[in-house]
Design a binder for these strands. Structure first.
Lengths: 343, 343
DNA sequence: CACAAAACTTGACGCGCGTAAAATATTCTG
DNA sequence: CAGAATATTTTACGCGCGTCAAGTTTTGTG
């Protein structure tokens, strides 16, 4: 703790007897100097408290060691979890993650990209808001700075995309629900803020038709990201009005399912598969709270970790190689069925 | 969109006919130049696409316009909400918020403070992990950089503290529960990671004694931040073992209550105040999900917004004035009772 | 209109570090 | 151990901007 503070590299150079360019090389890549030199530097760093001034460093580098991470909503456990996975991995690769949330607002998303520009990041991991995103601004951004999309796909945007295989996961769920009871209706928001929702509806319809059933889509009104509340209100109308076409509802995502479960409970409907139950509800995403709903929610889990890792690795490859891939790759991960009590 | 990109201030100076020092003054504080000059600069900025290089700017400033925000857990809706409130307010005050989450790990918290050091922020808003925080490192940090604590108090640390008035809020809840039914037992984690928990237990005991009741503390085992799961397991044992001393349980926070509600449901216990209900459960925090639990959770709400604003304003005052306050102020906000169905 | 005060321009230096070129030292090869 | 190959040191410049000092212009006052 009694380390002597050293402010500049030049000072450290005179104190340690190592030339400043060598120190500079070392801090840019410790392996770029000879073993013996690295040992000497490490010894010096044990003795003196020196950290390179990041502002001076970045001023002279066209590419910084920053990686921007832009997500639509930090409160959403999916993105909180993804960012948690991402941070240490960035750090380990020698990059500095900068986390920005758009809080569901397209203006905020554009601002985030704008402020990232000022930071000159080596690359950006972007989960776009979706339909409401300013595509033009985003495209311009992705052209200047290597950008990899995850979660939400926007065709042709960025160097690659990583997300969940909605066709597979919704298909699996529909197949399960049909096998074990009445075929499900599909519960979704009309103005879905996210292309995943559209893909999931299509996957639902395709799966139903494949199984020879008539698709039943319950398209509810509602704006914004307060999914639970929107689902609660709509569910109230549907249940009270006797408008549910079947006793099984597959929700486009867990947060809608949580709202629907809440209103079913409040209205005295027993949800589940056992005797006495009059409604089955299933979700999609394996939201952290879904195992604590009443009853616990049957859902499709996506591997947060897998998606996060793959996205980051893709970006790191691009950054390290210094060249953008010619082809844009799309990688989708299969979900797995989480069988719980609600369906 | 056809704006000509201008890279340096000098270039902008020659193009616009305004001297570079004047431009520099303008970018540091638009009001520091004469109205007519400002108008000319603004006109130039409409014509040319210029943004000061933040690295060059910050290199020459001892105090940057960055504000660090360090929270224990971003997945936790309280902090997600606080950070959402904070971001635009920082931006409006001309500061750049940098959000860092410690993900419940003390090492990560120390690393976050360390990396903030490198960024030389004007100030930091810090919600410490609590007991497990590295106090020595934190104190050293707070000595170097103006730091204001929120949510979790650590005596004497930082310039000020803003949090919730646990004595008032728990007192209010205990009083309500006693008035409307059996006196509550208090459900909490044994190794609470946060001083708020300790304060809440004390507040509970004090309130019970004030009302002439015997405090009943249910102290459950469990480590980490997976509160729902911990509460679920412990609740299972308590309920199955018939170990609940009363039909009313006040949980130290909503996430514990959510776990307890889930297990009560699973075990077939009816929770609520109506006839047929055999258990009342109350929480604390007004977690965003608490209105969608089954039944909806009665809890104490804290004003996220108020706490966030007050904390930031305090820091901005310190930063703007450039002087640390002599006295350390502690401000606690009262909670309000959210009466729902669970108690 | 004269004069002082305020704002501006010109010119110059420094911040801490990346990086290039040339000279010197070290390590490796046979 | 000689010679080549590789690392390091020395020296020097530039990055884009903050900021200072001196001189010039503009503004406001009586």
């Amino acid at each position: 703790m009694a380390l002597q503070k050293v402010k500049t590299m030049a000072e450290l150079a005179t104190l340690s007897g190592i030339s400043r360019p060598s120190l500079s090389k070392y801090f840019n890549d410790p392996n770029s100097v000879r073993d013996s030199t690295r040992a000497r530097i490490l010894r010096a760093l044990e003795q003196y408290d020196y950290v390179p001034n990041i502002y001076a460093v970045n001023q002279n580098r066209s590419l910084t060691r920053n990686i921007g991470i832009v997500v639509p909503y930090l409160s959403d456990p999916f993105f909180a979890e993804v960012s948690r996975n991402l941070e240490p991995k960035c750090a380990q690769a020698g990059f500095n993650p900068i986390l920005l949330s758009s809080f569901g607002e397209p203006e905020r998303e554009s601002e985030n990209l704008q402020s990232l520009r000022a930071i000159k990041p080596a690359g950006v991991l972007l989960a776009p808001l979706g339909e409401r995103s300013d595509r033009e601004a985003m495209r311009a951004f992705a052209k200047d700075i290597p950008t990899v999309l995850f979660d939400c796909e926007i065709a042709g945007m960025g160097e690659a995309h990583f997300g969940s295989n909605n066709a597979q996961s919704i298909g699996t769920m529909v197949e399960y629900l049909c096998r074990t009871g009445e075929p499900p209706a599909f519960f979704e928001m009309k103005d879905a803020p996210n292309p995943n929702a559209v893909q999931r509806r299509k996957a639902y319809c395709a799966a139903m038709e494949r199984l020879g059933k008539e698709p039943m889509v319950l398209c509810i009104e509602g704006q914004g990201w307060e999914f639970e509340r929107i689902a609660f209100r709509a569910g109230e109308r549907l249940i009270n009005g006797g408008l549910l076409p079947t006793d099984t509802v597959l929700c486009s995502n867990d947060r809608l399912a949580i709202g629907l479960l809440a209103v079913a409970f409040e209205l005295g409907l027993k949800v589940g598969t056992g005797r006495g139950a009059s409604l089955r509800i299933a979700g999609h995403d394996d939201h952290p709270f879904s195992r604590f709903t009443c009853p616990a929610l049957t859902t499709m889990s996506q591997s947060y970790d897998e998606i996060a890792s793959a996205t980051l690795n893709c970006l790191l490859d691009i950054v390290d190689s210094g060249e953008r891939p010619e082809e844009r790759h799309v990688t989708l991960f299969d979900g797995t069925l989480k069988l719980r009590r609600s369906a």
